[in-house]
């Protein structure tokens, strides 16, 4: 199993990363069956930011998330996170390094409860060893109590307290989205990648999700999110990165990006 390593070669570094970049992606490429989906992506995510990633369907946004989170290895390129090279590392190594993701269609463990979901994202649980399971360990019990306390706090914060013992498959679509955010919070990551956190949820819940996301940087969690709702992006994200055809097309403040003729043509279908 691959571990995070500094030894992975960096074939091409076209630009310098921002000095306070938590995540620096350089020339990341990935093809599927001869189709180039990522054609040399370069982007930085500043520590403490809520960075929006937008672009038309097929731009490669979710593939980029899959590559960064280790589910799909890149064909080439460099992914540096908190100063460490992540390209090619396993998903669990990346997660344990403090980079956690959610999925476009809320995914999880259908027959496990909300509480179990949250507990599973708790870090450093020595009780996850076979010996501790069979023979018990004081350290495991102590950590379990700490994590349970935190799981309850997060469930209360996200209004999931009432359904804490319900299996995930019994939750509404909106509750599943909240649970995804709860899991990310539970992991206490440095960076969370959110793939369409408000897809298919009603406006009230959308506002609630925005409220929760806005509070993350103050907790030390940087956010990179994919979203199609421009109002949501405009209200929450700075900067905004636009992808099209497997590359970064533009980046900057929301208004500047929205006014960019290339973005208007590629994403909004408006000819300059």
């Amino acid at each position: 199993m691959k571990a995070i390593s500094d030894t992975v070669p960096r074939p091409h570094v076209p630009q310098r990363s921002e000095p306070d970049a938590l995540l620096a992606i350089r020339d990341v490429r990935r093809a599927f069956y001869g189709l180039d989906v990522l054609r040399g992506v370069d982007l930085d995510v500043r520590a403490g930011s809520i960075t929006g990633l937008i672009g038309p369907n097929g731009a490669g946004k979710t593939t980029l998330f899959n590559v960064v989170s280790g589910l799909v290895p890149p064909d080439a390129g460099s992914i540096r996170f908190a100063g460490r090279e992540l390209a090619g590392a396993s998903p669990e190594a990346i997660s344990n390094a403090g980079l956690v993701r959610t999925f476009q269609v809320a995914r999880g463990f259908p027959r496990l409860s909300v509480f179990q979901h949250l507990m599973l994202y708790g870090r450093e649980q020595p009780g996850e060893s076979l010996a501790a399971a069979l023979f018990g360990s004081a350290e495991s019990r102590r950590r379990e109590a700490e994590l349970a306390e935190r799981a309850w706090q997060i469930a209360r914060l996200l209004n999931l307290e009432r359904v804490i013992d319900h299996p995930a498959q019994a939750l509404s679509g909106g509750q599943k989205k909240l649970l995804e955010i709860g899991r990310a919070l539970m992991a206490e990551p440095q960076l969370v990648l959110l793939d369409e956190p408000t897809a298919g949820v009603n406006p009230t819940l959308k506002a609630e999700i925005a409220h929760h996301l806005r509070a993350l940087p103050a907790r030390g969690i940087t956010v990179l999110l994919i979203e199609h709702d421009m109002k949501f992006i405009g209200a929450l994200c700075d900067p905004v990165i636009v992808m099209a055809e497997g590359r970064v097309l533009a980046q900057g403040g929301f208004e500047a990006v929205r006014a960019d003729a290339r973005v208007r043509e590629a994403y909004m279908g408006v000819r300059a």
Binding site: S95, L120, Y121, R123, E128, R183
Partner: peptide
């Protein structure tokens, strides 16, 4: 996959 993303 989700278990891996959860660090397992």
């Amino acid at each position: 996959q989700v278990a891996q993303v959860a660090g397992k």
